[in-house]
Design a binder for these strands. Structure first.
Lengths: 212, 212
DNA sequence: CAGCCGTCTTGACGGTTGTCCAAATTTCTT
DNA sequence: AAGAAATTTGGACAACCGTCAAGACGGCTG
């Protein structure tokens, strides 16, 4: 009897702890999301915890309560960013019935991303560069890079499949190509180069059928 | 007579001024070079003028004497870096007698660069990302990017020429591809991934003959 | 030699940074 | 309802930042 009661009590305690943990984590993500706003605006180098707090509904103390460190906060931001980013093109891939549809869907999404989420993407490139200096970022960054490579590969292999072909390239090379093109287009777009987006679209429109 | 003397005096003054300017500029470059050392070690975000000064033979006041600003200093660093970087493969291109020689020379140089100048290259990626946030960097960064694209194009078109072919790609796409591959390899190399360099070499060895 | 000029040193400044903490407040448990 | 625990606040702290300026130094000119 005592044992059963103890067991039940333990279960209740454990459940409560899980709940608390989940709440704690949800708060962390809320804070990370707020931090991403400022990080995307100012970049890693110019962003301070106080600046993040001021541009959000939180005080700077809260951030220290939920994160042991500035690095801890930014790592959390990076991880959270990943989840949002990696599925961006999945719907297009799933719904496209033929090569043209996939191509146009991809290009449309690419344009939208470049024009409305430029800030988040420049932050990604910023943090990836930081990972070259700060070992604490590397694991997460490399993981995200792998996920993005897989994302591009899903698009490419589906595109090839719709033409009864197979991609004539490795996933790594294909990702390098698209990432390089996107990065260059992003920089030009941020520098107010009106041809940045059309040039990118032209390039992709020509390359994708060649490789896949 | 008076006119001639004045003319001569003016010429002397002008010459002295040019000399002073040259000396001034040489000093700027000396300082920029010293700054690059620390920047390559710590990255843009973590580098302060005082840190730069401490890691060099100069005092922090000198930097303020020669540069109006921190941005001014770093812009000068970037411009100086460009000159060193852009000609890296020219000798290989000029001396190679056939496709194999060019390929192997290129790969050797690539390996050496990745292994001995990783710090300078991660700084380049860092500053290119900074340009997405800081408008003051954009002009120089875009210019360097164009130069690097031209550098890659010289290699590729020479490689094609040695096989009586023409590159089957635009300069922009080719640069995007190689830059993406190099960036990824650099990150992995810095993360102590032993396969980073061999993987890059394999990829290039396969891709170059396909495209050119 | 005196005076000037370009160069450099040194220290001080106001402001910002990451971090920490004591107290206040809210939320949960009993 | 009362006490405990979790959360939040806002301020204090030392360290550091970019910038600046007063003055020292050394070479050159007159």
């Amino acid at each position: 009897m005592a044992r059963r009661a103890t067991g039940a009590a333990q279960r209740v305690v454990a459940a409560a702890e899980v709940l608390r943990d989940e709440k704690f984590n949800a708060r962390r993500i809320e804070l990370a999301e707020a931090a991403l706003e400022t990080l995307g605006e100012l970049g890693f180098a110019r962003t301070s915890l106080r600046e993040i707090a001021q541009n959000s509904a939180f005080t700077h103390g809260v951030f220290h309560y939920y994160f042991s460190d500035k690095l801890d906060l930014i790592c959390c931001c990076v991880r959270h960013y990943k989840a949002k980013c990696v599925t961006r093109y999945d719907e297009v891939v799933a719904s496209a019935q033929n090569r043209d549809e996939l191509m146009e869907g991809f290009l449309a999404k690419l344009t939208a991303t470049l024009e409305t989420e430029a800030r988040m993407h420049r932050l990604w490139y910023d943090l990836r560069s930081q990972a070259m200096f700060e070992a604490a970022f590397r694991k997460d960054v490399l993981e995200i890079d792998k996920s993005l490579e897989a994302m591009i590969w899903r698009i490419a292999s589906r595109y090839a499949e719709l033409g009864n072909k197979r991609p004539a390239s490795s996933p790594a090379a294909l990702y390098a190509l698209f990432d390089g093109l996107f990065q260059s287009a992003l920089l030009r777009h941020l520098a107010d180069d009106k041809k940045a987006v059309p040039d990118l679209l032209d390039e992709v429109r020509r390359l994708l059928p060649t490789i896949c």
